[in-house]
Design a binder for these strands. Structure first.
Length: 200
DNA sequence: CCCTGATTCGC
DNA sequence: GCGAATCAGG
């Protein structure tokens, strides 16, 4: 694969958007993240634009004697500030891109006090007692990751009340392709049959 | 351990 | 110019 205009375009765009080198590499295909980083440097856009939240000091010894045009960044790509008021009730949606500021289920209404956090938001959470129990078990051994620690292969199931500090993400290894670990996948993606005629 | 970008250097 | 290997972190 060579760096065609188009590919460089994509590289510039994604890098400007704050995508990681590995993500860009994945998107482009045929190159590794190293290739991407190498290219980024050669293009002279090692530093991302806007008041990047992930602003890196970049201790690299840049050429001090060179009027860098700094044309890199595009005008409308400000630091992705996250809004606290995100209409994001279902946990299934918190599974976003790792680097992009995944909208954490912001505090909504002071629902459950403390006792049973009851994570599954799905309106009709008719999970079998057994499943629920196993999930509870898993949550005991959860890695309790913070938003920043989530990756593509860590379970993104939120646990606890986002309005309090008693909140974290499962963090266990995800099931191939899914955003959640096996236990949480089972409660997140229920076959319709399971919710059919619940006995209530 | 997973990941990030930075740098080096043979090609 | 390119990018694997390596380095230096989080």
């Amino acid at each position: 694969m060579s760096w065609t205009e188009e590919r460089v375009e994509t590289l510039k765009r994604m890098w400007g958007e704050g995508q990681s080198a590995s993500q860009i590499a994945k998107e482009l295909g045929g190159v590794t993240r190293n290739a991407v980083i190498g290219k980024v440097h050669r293009l002279g856009l090692s530093n991302r634009a806007g008041g990047g939240a992930t602003a890196k000091p970049a201790p690299a010894k840049e050429k001090p004697a060179k009027p860098e045009p700094a044309v890199a960044a595009k005008p409308e790509a400000p630091a992705p500030d996250r809004k606290p008021a995100e209409p994001r009730p279902t946990p299934a949606n918190t599974a976003a891109q790792p680097s992009a500021p995944a909208p954490v289920p912001a505090a909504r209404k002071p629902i459950v006090p403390a006792g049973q956090p009851l994570p599954p938001q799905p309106s009709a959470n008719e999970i079998s007692p057994e499943t629920l129990a196993s999930v509870r078990e898993v949550e005991k051994t959860a890695k309790k990751l913070t938003l920043m620690e989530l990756t593509e292969r860590t379970c993104k199931w939120p646990i606890g009340d986002p309005a309090t500090d008693d909140f974290w993400f499962c963090g266990l290894p995800v099931q191939q392709g899914k955003p959640y670990c096996e236990a949480h996948v089972s409660v997140a993606f229920q076959p319709m049959s399971a919710r059919r005629d619940r006995k209530r």
